[in-house]
Design a protein around this nucleic acid. Sequence first.
DNA 1: GGGTTTTCTGTGAACGTACACAGACTAGGT
DNA 2: ACCTAGTCTGTGTACGTTCACAGAAAACCC
Lengths: 340, 340
Amino acid sequence: MVTIPSRRKRATIHDVAVEAGVSRGTVSRVVNNEPYVSASSRTAIEAAIEKVGYVPNNAARSLVMQRSEAVGFIVHEPHSLFLDDPNIGGILLGANTVLSRSDYQMVSLVIDSQRDTDRVARYLSGGFVDGVIIVSARQEDPITRVIEKLRLPAAFVGHPPEQSPLPFVGIDNRASARAITERLMQTGRQRIGMVAAALDRDSGADRLAGFTDALGDRFDPALVARVPLYTFSDGAEGMCALLERDPLIDGVFAASDAVAAGALDALRQAGRSVPGDVGIVGFDDSSWALRTQPHLSTVHQPAFGLGERAAECVLGQLRGEEQPADGILLETPIIWRDSA
Amino acid sequence: MVTIPSRRKRATIHDVAVEAGVSRGTVSRVVNNEPYVSASSRTAIEAAIEKVGYVPNNAARSLVMQRSEAVGFIVHEPHSLFLDDPNIGGILLGANTVLSRSDYQMVSLVIDSQRDTDRVARYLSGGFVDGVIIVSARQEDPITRVIEKLRLPAAFVGHPPEQSPLPFVGIDNRASARAITERLMQTGRQRIGMVAAALDRDSGADRLAGFTDALGDRFDPALVARVPLYTFSDGAEGMCALLERDPLIDGVFAASDAVAAGALDALRQAGRSVPGDVGIVGFDDSSWALRTQPHLSTVHQPAFGLGERAAECVLGQLRGEEQPADGILLETPIIWRDSA
DNA sequence: GGGTTTTCTGTGAACGTACACAGACTAGGT
DNA sequence: ACCTAGTCTGTGTACGTTCACAGAAAACCC
């Protein structure tokens, strides 16, 4: 049998008590900054803590307190999207800011395989977190079932799974898509198409629906190119398809800024000028929008704000406040730049 | 006094035992898949688990087992870099892949303020993780002190803090920078400059040193523009400065792909063609490299591999294997594309 | 000086699990 | 019929905290 090398044994509250010549209770009071401890005991205990190198054991603490002071942040995205999606970082930072203010530790859990899913479900069940923020959940997700079963305080960012009473915070993709498409029409574009992406997800489907809403009678299904992902390369591909179907196209709504950047690249290769020959708008107002030439007109997605609100929602539940049953939708201002 | 709403009490192993008419020990054996339990007990216990909705309590388990089966992944970057840096995502995914394979849960902790630093230090001390991977640590970091004090198995990605015996995995920035600069010279560029960034960090300083190494006698300090960050906008700014100092410049090493993309933009605005008038190379081989026109020649930084190796290093320590005292350096192939 | 309040301290129980141990029962061989 | 080995089960203890409680000591008031 292999012997596991014993890491140096950690000092416990009991060691400190012995060293300082007091009892566990008194040490506990000092550690937790409670009143009713004499100055002499306090200094002795502080010296003892320093001497033996004591750090409290959170596992023991959270066992007896029945809480961990931590909130999970679950990202459930395939590789490529996780790396590319500019929103996730903003959401994460927003959530972390709010949680940090209340002295909660945010722990992010990345799900990247079925094995991950099961392990994260166990992790959540295990009492390592008091609440959870979920970014882009899947339908029929074991994670969602665990949350409901445990009544774990939770908040979804984006759409929550169907039939689920869990709170969420998101944006109105459909209305935003309609609004920016209308602006595109108002600038006099005649033949307006869309590079629609990620139609298997709510955000993708809603953006297409908003586009259709805005065009009304003028909607032409031939002018919609469908691509699988919100990526640069899919954007370029979609744009090529559109140009082939209608060389006279003069307006394009790209389902995201990354898609728009790809489309822009395809337009340049085809020799079209933007915004001269073709006007193009994106969605997200991510860092992509300022990297392109010209800069993208787009819908601002308040990623940081989404993270903040989701965190506040979870903290509210932790404090026992009643949360609005239906979700919160954040504003999505339209940013008008040079690409249309 | 405010009453905290009591969440429904969770079922314990004891509840399951009562429900199934057996003892705690037997339930524990079923839960942990141990032998020596009769078929009848097993089925009764499984039914009882399902009925009472039992999930093991990790806090209790990790208290008694003295380990948590989790590894921390600490990201210590200011906002803007965290969002922009294409490497972090790759490192994270690589680490998660390896940890997942060994059934370890990766928990990422983002440090974004002093308050975060202290809280993360407490978190690590608390026994919530068995090991830790640190991306871009700071000198004089409380985190590093905690790790040394607890003898927590750790691996740094990038340079470890000075004087620290902790293992790390990284790349040889200096040699890589020299190699790509030499390739730039071999293509016949005569007046070669550099947009150097992040000189307050090891990676930035090493890349400049490598550039200097390669040029030898031909090194001209006037042809180095220094900018604070690895960003698109700083790259554009640095390139403008170089063009002003020497309009005849015909080769540029940008300290990162993002910097190179910015420089490319500045060159376009100045009416220079790439690679016709000016050859430009980047560093990282990030998603930036294929988004530019022309695609960037660059140094491939094996982000995913760095994450994998760091995770393997921590797992090795957890298994009690001796680790190489000095760090591991990964290969950085040069990718030759169209920009030079 | 006797009572009351306030401050301070120690002790025992609990949190939910794993593990060692002891004991009971079964099966197989002589 | 006896011993042995293997299978199965229950019990007590430990992990490191927090918290309620009980009591001691000090401070205050008439």
